[in-house]
Design a protein around this nucleic acid. Structure first.
Lengths: 223, 223
DNA sequence: CACTGTCAAGAGCACTGCTCTCTATTTTGT
DNA sequence: ACAAAATAGAGAGCAGTGCTCTTGACAGTG
């Protein structure tokens, strides 16, 4: 039954992919704001209404692109991590690979780390892919001897950190976990500022500054 | 001269302001994406084409709102700084005031620190207002005894930092200046992640984490 | 008073997301 | 194998958008 059924379903899956690919192409050119369903359909030689057989709305198509982008940047980060060797080098590799992906796909990056699009509904589909870069950083710290970091965290933050510790399965104190989140914030904060032009007038180009930040934050978390 | 400012000119200035106010109101409701010139005109009881006598395009109106938003968040930061007293408390006050403004005006914040609007090229009008929050932080460090921070910066970054030192007129080494930019990045990185939902699943609500970050980054720059 | 520049208004263009109906084709159940 | 059901694309159409152009009315100045 799967043999006959897949005839149509395979065509459907293929066309769905083609639509996403073309949409991604246009996204890279004109950005999320300029992405037009009609233009995508036009380019694919179909009529716009037919597109709605595959995506119920423009937002839905964008949501799919968002998930893909999260997975792409997450995979870039994971690929950059050799998995073995000096933790500090692994950390730096992940940082730079993440930034490199963002600079290579600025509009896709803006889609996921810029302002959320219209209705701002972040479906459950996005939360797992969205965590991949962060998890790649976490992975470097697991089974790694960390330099102890000092500082007191408030009780509520400690509770949040301890919950995270369990979920992530790492052996680290609340202070380290908190610093890790700060480092994660710093990573994407720096990429945002770089891509969105906020460093113009201070550290532009930002390559050296970013490399410096990566090292400083490695030390900051105890690496 | 200014007295003879014609009634027409005053009416024009007034109406220009009313348009911006109404646009800001709609921005708060539907976001930049949903902001419609026709809807603004409709609400003001005028026809859409008349609006083009005041703003040559939608992007131009948005640019004006961007400048206003930069000034508003900058002023919030400046107001929060008592100007005297313990530098560390001033630093924390600025951090929290900045975040508070962002949370009170999420769509305006997204306009300036989210993805840049397509078709809008950051004009020179925006760079000065955009620097106000950062300058408020810098001001805390001037004439303040800083704890020395260590670390080596590369030659290019050092050059950038030294140029900044001259421009800002502060007495601090390249390492401190670099750390200051990292702190600035951390501030807006954290606000971004908080407002755009990236902290869901880790440190949500992010109040405690943000307060913690503010303190940690104060120490980080030597305060 | 006449002239000139500014203004609101309206019509209209090209485009958008989306819905609906119609027809052709494929898949499925008996 | 054949009828029924599900699915595909095409086309028309709706309401909305940014923006342009023209028209007629008004204010400011010589």
């Amino acid at each position: 039954m799967t043999a006959t059924r897949t005839a149509r379903e395979r065509a459907r899956a293929e066309l769905t992919q083609e639509i996403k690919d073309e949409a991604r192409r246009q996204l890279a050119e004109v950005g999320a704001h300029g992405l037009s369903l009609r233009a995508v359909a036009r380019e694919l030689g179909m009529v716009s209404s037919a597109l709605y057989r595959y995506f119920p709305s423009r937002d839905r198509l964008l949501t799919d692109l968002i998930v893909d982008a999260y997975n792409a940047i997450g995979e870039a980060a994971e690929q950059a991590d050799p998995g073995k060797g000096a933790p500090r080098e692994r950390w730096l590799a992940i940082w730079h690979a993440t930034r490199d992906w963002a600079r290579a796909h600025p509009h896709e990056y803006a889609l996921i780390y810029g302002s959320p699009i219209p209705g701002y509904q972040a479906p459950q589909d996005t939360v797992a892919p969205a965590a991949r870069v962060a998890l790649a950083l976490v992975k470097v710290l697991t089974h790694t001897e960390l330099r102890a970091v000092d500082g007191a965290v408030s009780s509520e933050l400690r509770a949040q950190a301890e919950t995270l510790t369990k979920v992530l399965g790492i052996i680290a104190g609340p202070e380290t976990v908190t610093r890790l989140i700060m480092a994660w914030t710093q990573l994407f904060g720096a990429i945002n500022f770089d891509l969105f032009g906020q460093y113009v007038g201070s550290v532009d180009p930002a390559d050296e500054f970013f490399a410096h930040s990566a090292k400083r934050m490695a030390e900051f978390v105890g690496l």
